[in-house]
Nucleic acid binder design. Structure first.
Lengths: 249, 249
DNA sequence: CGTATAGTTGATTTGGCTCAACATCGGTGG
DNA sequence: CCACCGATGTTGAGCCAAATCAACTATACG
């Protein structure tokens, strides 16, 4: 069988990706937390942001750096990881266009609790957290939106704590894949395609296990015709089966 | 040795504990998120709250109930737990006077993700989440405070995810005890006294293990003269040792 | 003082980690 | 365009931390 190279995704060059001013404004306008503001107001806010481009695998900030900035993804995607003392990596979250990360805290003497790394060529809008705080004070609508997002993330984090405390690795891998599909997947004729370069190492870091165990379980899922994977993509073929495994309460 | 009954804590009767109106107002005023408001404003807000008393072990709300209320602890303490399909309990958080829990979300069709249970006789102030939302809109300062608390809780939850993913049970128990000491402990001549009735079951639920394993590890800590425990109290005698085990990065 | 509940401790089992060898992918240069 | 090679993924074997099962003990409360 000569089936080399059947990647179902567009090949993307790993080039620094910067925003055009118009794109920037457009993106800011469509952010969930700014889209209740007037064009005038967003234009004003736009001036305070800087944009910086990153290539794949490039670090946006390191854990333990002084945390002074809030970041917004204008394009691309970002992973947030924490490392423990022996260097084991825990993948906290994967964020996509329009989501924010970094520091919300305006009080000095705080440090990033995680490392942020671009998963794809990405354009990141940055703002000083103190300046962002002024925006929050000025526009209560924005505050509430940021609060809602944060509250939602807290609920998700708590769900993950429950998973880690009370479910098997197989369960957690299924849950991880489901969440990834919901958040980053797009439906196509074969199923739900997740077009993000996720290594076994990343999956393991999200599910709280080792790459070997993740690989074993994913093989099992592939044999059961639930999944199909390549180095830089994953397709969920049978989402019902995954849901059944996770047993949503 | 006739050392029966050496409990280092005041005995509290398990009676329904209700707030006096003055106490209520006082508590609202001292809440971190209202203490920037004027007396006039707090008095106004006070009218919208109801208070309800609970005895120990009483349920404030159940997981999967429709979530319509935000709760604030006027007195006492509350634990938040999640259960998985086989009934295993995960203790998400322990909250004390002045802290809030329940629903922030004003949009219908949402359900509590956890069960809230009084750990001690407690008085809980309740407000409809929609009405609370109006307060948030009216007072941006309050919004920001609530956001800060939520963001802080998210960071803590993420830290716990890291712990569960990458540390041994012994480590996690040490971490759990440290956090409990920081949050609920009071320094006295013997060490840090945690005056909350925490069973081995609770500790296990916080550290993501079983009561038996929790018991074994706590015994080990007691033999190493790090801890001293009774049914309803815990004293941390050697906090440095615990910190060393957790290896704060 | 007696009883129910919570905690302790031991024996056994097991899920998942570790270590190790091997296979496959996909980018790179000849 | 093909062959090579480093990186990533897969699979097997053995081992260990922690779960489970079970018997027993201590504590608080009526």
């Amino acid at each position: 069988m000569s089936n080399r190279r059947r990647t179902p995704l567009k090949i993307v060059k790993n080039e620094v990706h910067s925003c055009t001013p118009i794109l920037r404004l457009n993106i800011l306008h469509n952010l969930p937390f700014f889209n209740n503001l007037s064009h005038q107001e967003v234009t004003e806010i736009n001036k305070i942001f800087n944009d910086i481009g990153y290539v794949s695998e490039e670090t946006i900030y390191h854990m333990a750096d002084r945390s002074t900035r809030l970041c917004v993804i204008a394009s691309g995607s970002v992973k947030l990881i924490r490392q423990n003392a022996d260097g084991k990596e825990v993948l906290m979250d994967i964020l996509k266009q329009g989501e924010f990360f970094g520091s919300l805290d305006p009080f000095g003497d705080t440090y990033y609790q995680e490392t942020a790394i671009a998963l794809q060529p990405s354009c990141i809008l940055k703002i000083d957290s103190e300046e962002f705080r002024t925006i929050l004070q000025k526009y209560p609508v924005v505050s509430l939106q940021v609060l809602d997002t944060t509250a939602k993330r807290l609920l998700e984090a708590q769900e993950r704590i429950k998973q880690l405390s009370a479910h098997s690795v197989e369960n957690r891998i299924a849950y991880t894949l489901l969440k990834l599909g919901q958040k980053l997947g797009e439906q196509n004729e074969n199923g739900i395609l997740i077009q993000i370069p996720l290594s076994r190492y990343d999956i393991a870091g999200m599910a709280g296990t080792t790459p070997e165990t993740a690989s074993r379980i994913i093989s099992k899922f592939k044999n059961a015709d639930i999944l199909k994977t390549g180095r830089k993509w994953t397709i969920i073929k049978n989402i019902e089966q995954l849901e059944k495994m996770v047993k949503i309460i």
